[in-house]
């Protein structure tokens, strides 16, 4: 059987909220070491990669590997039943047809249970090789979210220029062009190498969808290398990571 209990069920609720507008039906892989999920949006431009380690759960048991095909759209509807400070337990049998979700408040005097029907999905699993990113930067997730929203009002596309010492977001639209440059700390500047700078263009519409995860973490990590998708990574405290991959645009 499989059973995983999170003391703070709102974390799981926030994760589902953060991916529901990108992916619809997904396979969640449950293994003895944790839960993971990989799925692309319908246009194959973006990819979601979630990993939650078993050590972050209050209780975790998974006797054998299970693939749980689930509608994220429906799961998001069920998540509306999760209130602030509720714990959440996910459980199913070894050959499940549904996933049971149990939410309980802190006083243990209110328990909500819902069985979500599972679905069979073709597995479209991409192998993401170990990549050495030439440019990585960590910034405030709220600030990143705000600037992506503001830039989207000016242009559909943003050009990222990231080095180890700064990140620059440049846009060009019908009304004009401009950029926001954010410098990182002096300590990091001392170790910088100019050749680390990479420039790539991305669709702001997707970045705004990724930013629905900003309430999961105060910080967001951006990783970039030439000729490879951008990685936007949110640490889910003591549980794991939620990563979004975004294919660049080809610019003339």
């Amino acid at each position: 059987m499989f059973e995983a209990k999170l003391t703070d069920g709102t974390i799981f609720k926030k994760i589902i909220e953060a991916i529901k507008d990108l992916v619809t039906d997904v396979n969640i892989d449950a293994t003895p070491t944790g839960l993971s999920l990989q799925a692309m949006d319908s246009s194959h431009v973006a990819l979601v990669n979630l990993h939650l380690g078993m050590e972050g759960f209050e209780r975790y048991r998974c006797d054998r590997n299970l693939t749980l095909g689930i509608s994220i759209t429906n799961l998001a509807k069920v998540m509306k039943l999760v209130n602030q400070n509720d714990s959440i337990t996910l459980k199913c049998e070894d050959e499940p047809t549904y996933l049971t979700i149990v939410c309980q408040n802190q006083k243990h005097d209110r328990t909500t249970q819902f069985n979500v029907n599972l679905i069979t999905l073709d597995s479209e699993h991409l192998g993401i090789p170990e990549t050495e990113y030439t440019s990585e930067i960590t910034m405030n997730s709220g600030e990143f979210s705000k600037l992506c929203k503001e830039l989207y009002a000016l242009s559909e596309t943003v050009e990222f220029e990231i080095s180890t010492t700064f990140v620059k977001f440049a846009v060009e639209g019908e009304i004009g062009s401009g950029s926001i440059k954010i410098q990182t700390s002096a300590d990091e500047a001392e170790t910088s190498r100019p050749e680390d700078t990479v420039k790539l263009s991305f669709a702001l519409r997707y970045l705004n969808l990724f930013n629905k995860a900003y309430s999961l973490s105060n910080q967001v990590k951006l990783s970039m290398a030439a000729e490879t998708p951008l990685v936007v990574e949110y640490e889910v405290e003591s549980l794991g990571t939620l990563k979004y991959y975004l294919a660049p645009k080809i610019t003339d």
Binding site: L47, H125, G127, T157, S201, E227, A247
Partner: peptide, 14 residues
């Protein structure tokens, strides 16, 4: 003029 790449351009299916 911009064109959008896809994930399949970079990664292979397992």
């Amino acid at each position: 003029m911009t064109e959008q790449h896809q994930m399949d351009d970079y990664y292979e299916y397992n």
